[in-house]
Amino acid sequence: MNIRRATDADFVNLCTTAMRAFHDDPVMRWLYPDDEVYFQPKGAVFTGAMTNWLAHQQPWCTDDAAALAIWFPPVELGAPAPEQINVGPPPTPEMLARFELIGPAMAAHKPVEPHWYLQLLATHPDWQRQGLGAHLMEVVFERADSEGIPCYLETERPELVAYYRHHGFEVRSEWDVDPDATLGEVGPHMWGMFRLTREP
């Protein structure tokens, strides 16, 4: 299996894969509850994020972009985030309110020690259960282990807690995104998971 760095030529396939993979994800569908918005053609809901990931993170993917991983390398605590590229339609007030709730909640649970951060792992539903996600994690596990740096991720599904445990992660924190009086709803439940380094 060939795992490589994604390029701009993969853009539409990457967006489509991410959209299809997260079509029932609790966080994504809380942020984008309207089917007409979420299921726009060519994975347009991921256009803004993918533009920035390709500019700053250069995602890992399979040759056909049927699976991808967004890994953030270790940074010093308090280091400035990369400048964001604004593309696509502006978010609605409701969407902004949700992002303003979930962003600080996730930041509050991130480890303070340097770590590799797996922001997204996605496999198109037609190619799931073939080990593609494991290969996309392993490319960074090898480097993380050789450097003695742990890995971290968040997930929102109990079955994925079990999946990531199988790959060496353990639950480090667990929380609910606070309810918002303006939106009149409770945010998703989330787990933060940490993988200690292993001997090469």
Score class of each variant (00 low, 15 high):
residue 1 M to D: 05
residue 2 N to A: 04
residue 5 R to A: 13
residue 5 R to F: 07
residue 7 T to Y: 04
residue 13 N to A: 11
residue 13 N to Q: 10
residue 15 C to K: 00
residue 15 C to G: 03
residue 17 T to R: 08
residue 17 T to M: 03
residue 18 A to H: 00
residue 18 A to N: 09
residue 19 M to K: 07
residue 19 M to T: 09
residue 19 M to V: 00
residue 19 M to Q: 15
residue 20 R to S: 08
residue 25 D to F: 02
residue 27 V to R: 00
residue 29 R to P: 15
residue 30 W to D: 01
residue 31 L to E: 15
residue 32 Y to R: 14
residue 34 D to F: 07
residue 36 E to G: 12
residue 36 E to N: 08
residue 36 E to H: 06
residue 38 Y to A: 14
residue 39 F to K: 10
residue 41 P to A: 07
residue 43 G to T: 01
residue 46 F to Q: 05
residue 48 G to H: 11
residue 49 A to T: 07
residue 49 A to C: 11
residue 51 T to W: 00
residue 53 W to N: 06
residue 53 W to P: 02
residue 55 A to K: 09
residue 57 Q to W: 08
residue 61 C to H: 03
residue 64 D to P: 01
residue 66 A to T: 13
residue 69 A to W: 04
residue 69 A to D: 06
residue 69 A to H: 04
residue 69 A to I: 03
residue 70 I to W: 00
residue 74 P to Q: 04
residue 75 V to Y: 01
residue 75 V to W: 00
residue 76 E to F: 04
residue 79 A to F: 04
residue 80 P to E: 05
residue 81 A to T: 08
residue 86 N to H: 04
residue 86 N to S: 05
residue 86 N to F: 02
residue 87 V to W: 01
residue 89 P to W: 02
residue 89 P to N: 09
residue 90 P to I: 01
residue 92 T to Q: 15
residue 92 T to I: 12
residue 94 E to W: 02
residue 94 E to K: 11
residue 97 A to R: 13
residue 98 R to I: 04
residue 99 F to M: 14
residue 101 L to Y: 02
residue 102 I to D: 04
residue 106 M to K: 09
residue 107 A to F: 01
residue 107 A to V: 03
residue 108 A to C: 11
residue 108 A to M: 10
residue 109 H to L: 10
residue 109 H to K: 14
residue 110 K to F: 06
residue 112 V to N: 13
residue 114 P to Y: 01
residue 115 H to V: 09
residue 115 H to P: 14
residue 122 A to Q: 10
residue 123 T to Y: 05
residue 123 T to V: 13
residue 123 T to E: 11
residue 124 H to Y: 08
residue 125 P to V: 00
residue 128 Q to A: 05
residue 128 Q to K: 05
residue 128 Q to C: 02
residue 129 R to L: 12
residue 134 A to I: 07
residue 135 H to R: 15
residue 136 L to D: 14
residue 136 L to T: 14
residue 137 M to C: 15
residue 137 M to F: 03
residue 138 E to C: 09
residue 139 V to E: 11
residue 140 V to M: 14
residue 141 F to S: 12
residue 142 E to D: 07
residue 145 D to P: 03
residue 146 S to G: 11
residue 147 E to T: 07
residue 147 E to A: 12
residue 148 G to R: 03
residue 150 P to D: 02
residue 151 C to V: 06
residue 152 Y to F: 15
residue 152 Y to M: 12
residue 153 L to E: 07
residue 155 T to M: 03
residue 157 R to F: 00
residue 158 P to A: 06
residue 158 P to V: 03
residue 160 L to N: 15
residue 160 L to R: 11
residue 163 Y to Q: 02
residue 163 Y to T: 02
residue 164 Y to L: 08
residue 165 R to I: 03
residue 167 H to D: 01
residue 168 G to C: 13
residue 168 G to N: 11
residue 169 F to R: 13
residue 170 E to H: 06
residue 170 E to M: 04
residue 171 V to A: 11
residue 171 V to D: 06
residue 171 V to C: 09
residue 172 R to W: 12
residue 172 R to Y: 14
residue 172 R to L: 13
residue 172 R to G: 14
residue 172 R to S: 15
residue 175 W to G: 02
residue 176 D to R: 10
residue 177 V to Y: 04
residue 180 D to I: 06
residue 181 A to D: 14
residue 186 V to N: 07
residue 188 P to K: 00
residue 188 P to R: 00
residue 189 H to K: 05
residue 190 M to P: 01
residue 190 M to Q: 00
residue 190 M to Y: 00
residue 192 G to K: 01
residue 195 R to V: 08
residue 197 T to R: 10
